[in-house]
Design a protein around this nucleic acid. Structure first.
Lengths: 205, 205
DNA sequence: TGGAAAACATGACGATCAGCATGTAAGTTC
DNA sequence: GAACTTACATGCTGATCGTCATGTTTTCCA
């Protein structure tokens, strides 16, 4: 069927590697961190336990690699959607929508699983922190470019407030909270943010 | 040492039961949901595996009971601190502080562990949803009593925004985000909330 | 005060886990 | 095209998991 003919060693390597990492993400999303076993992962990836052993010395290393894989994907997704944003007040509302979309998708669900698990796992935690900080800073940079007229401090404040609110809402969504209320809260927050944006731009301190 | 003399059956029952539930919470906070095993729990509670078997037919039932135990504790803690709150603008700021304190403590850490785990565990999810909703509604009632001059809709909106923001910040705190920034964000949100409060009370509609 | 019942302990069971040792197939190099 | 290396598969091992069957202690009731 598919061209299984000739594959470079490097091709084979990265192919199964990404298959394993994608399968890990799927596993985190579908069965959760607690029941994400190596066996389950390589069953989904279509490879054997020996393969994961060959690529990663231990499960922790697989998870660390999954963190990076995951963050890279999220970063690309956010960057792609944040690139073409209008400026001004409507831009603020649009940016909030995009941040919500980014932080409530399946990728972020997997991130949350790893994040919560990392609280009691120093090794995983050490793997997550730097890439997450980098993601945050990169996203912040995109956002501040959109709201250029705003003082950087104010823009940063608005950004982090939005991110943390969004994460709380995402947590609510995961357990099946009322979607209508979430939408209402998000709309309210957009109104507030636009208001603050106008205040800061028309009457700068 | 301690008076191990006479204990009613009911006393014995509830004593080991609460010991088990408290140990479960400790376990969730210290080692996380993924590594919270029955053995670990009853080791911390100082009882045998047979005991937990006698009180709870399965581990899932223990977790469900822990959810209720946990929520009851959190509810009491929040109610106690929310009871004596000043009214008006300063009351809003104080209420936000209290909500943050409530949603960032060890009890809420345990709740988050269970919450995230419940996403992929329908049984646990079914146990969590009703008690969590009840907690939310009860807390909301306390808060709305504080901000009596505010239209109920507005108060509810402010409450849920605060709760979700706080949960996001709590998640950030769990992974070791910058405490100074969190404090800054919380202060900013309090300023915003007070501002909105004043707007809504001085110029209704 | 002695037997019934509840509360709890002990030990074993099958299942599953992560990790390792060993074998086989695919690609590379000369 | 033959030695060699890399990529992957198979099967095992000890540890740990949740659950259960059975024994022991404590309280209760008549």
């Amino acid at each position: 069927m598919t061209e299984t003919a000739h594959r470079t060693q490097a091709q084979r390597r990265e192919q199964t590697r990404t298959a394993l990492l994608d399968a890990t993400i799927d596993c985190l999303v579908e069965v959760g961190y607690a029941r994400t076993s190596v066996q389950e992962i390589c069953a989904r990836a279509g490879v054997s336990k020996g393969a994961v052993q060959h690529h990663f010395t231990a499960k922790a290393e697989l998870m660390a690699a999954a963190v990076e894989h995951l963050t890279t994907k999220l970063r690309r997704q956010l960057a792609a959607s944040l690139d073409d944003l209008p400026g001004g007040g409507t831009g603020v509302a649009a940016a909030i929508d995009l941040l919500w979309a980014g932080y409530s998708g399946t990728l972020s669900t997997a991130v949350t699983e790893l994040w919560v698990a990392a609280r009691t796992d120093p090794e995983l935690r050490a793997a997550i922190r730097p890439v997450d900080r980098a993601l945050g800073r990169a996203t912040l940079e995109h956002v501040t470019q959109v709201a250029g007229e705003l003082p950087p401090e104010r823009a940063e404040m608005l950004f982090w407030l939005t991110v943390n609110l969004t994460r709380g809402l995402a947590l609510d969504a995961e357990l099946g909270g009322d979607p209508a209320r979430r939408r209402q809260l998000l709309e309210e927050w957009k109104r507030i943010a636009v208001l603050l944006y106008q205040d800061a731009t028309t009457a700068p301190s």
